[in-house]
């Protein structure tokens, strides 16, 4: 995504954070009661692509997607749309999205949760890039001696 808003950024980080990581970084305070507007639910999203990568759209197939919406005590709606089928991950991501919208908590949550996750995800990405780059190839064309 190009030039994401702060909220788009944290939602994308949360969508990529496995449940174990979320649980390790985030413990809901016991007195925080979230209202479940849309219980965690797994379904599909049709994945679209473009012919030739840039042309007209076509449907490639489906992928699993889990969504959840909660309302925080402060009244913010927290949304989660995460690839895969982990309902607990979606629930935690939705709660965090709601809490992150509270300006009083945002800075703390960003530095405690979102930034560490973002660093991990970007490191994993760089490692994958490096692996691919190790197979970068320069082919030589040999002149065939036929003349």
């Amino acid at each position: 995504m190009q030039n994401p808003t702060p909220r788009q950024h944290w939602m994308s980080i949360l969508a990529r954070a496995p449940r174990a990581q979320l649980c390790a970084l985030y413990r809901p305070e016991p007195d925080t009661e979230f209202e479940l507007i849309r219980a965690p639910e797994t379904g599909l999203t049709q994945v679209r692509a473009r012919s030739g990568g840039t042309g007209a759209q076509f449907n490639l197939g489906d992928m699993t997607l889990t969504r959840c919406v909660v309302r925080s005590p402060a009244g913010h709606l927290g949304y989660a749309f995460v690839a895969g089928r982990d309902r607990q991950q979606a629930r935690l991501a939705a709660e965090l999205d709601a809490l992150l919208q509270e300006s009083a908590r945002q800075t703390q949550l960003l530095s405690d949760i979102i930034e560490p996750l973002a660093r991990q995800q970007s490191a994993a990405r760089s490692a994958r890039d490096a692996e691919a780059d190790s197979t970068k190839v320069d082919f030589f064309t040999l002149v065939r001696g036929e003349d």
């Binding site: 479940l36 507007i37 849309r38 219980a39 919406v69 309302r71």
Partner: peptide
């Protein structure tokens, strides 16, 4: 306001 839907859709 959005309200809650079915608990278990």
């Amino acid at each position: 306001t959005l309200i809650r839907g079915f608990d278990d859709s």
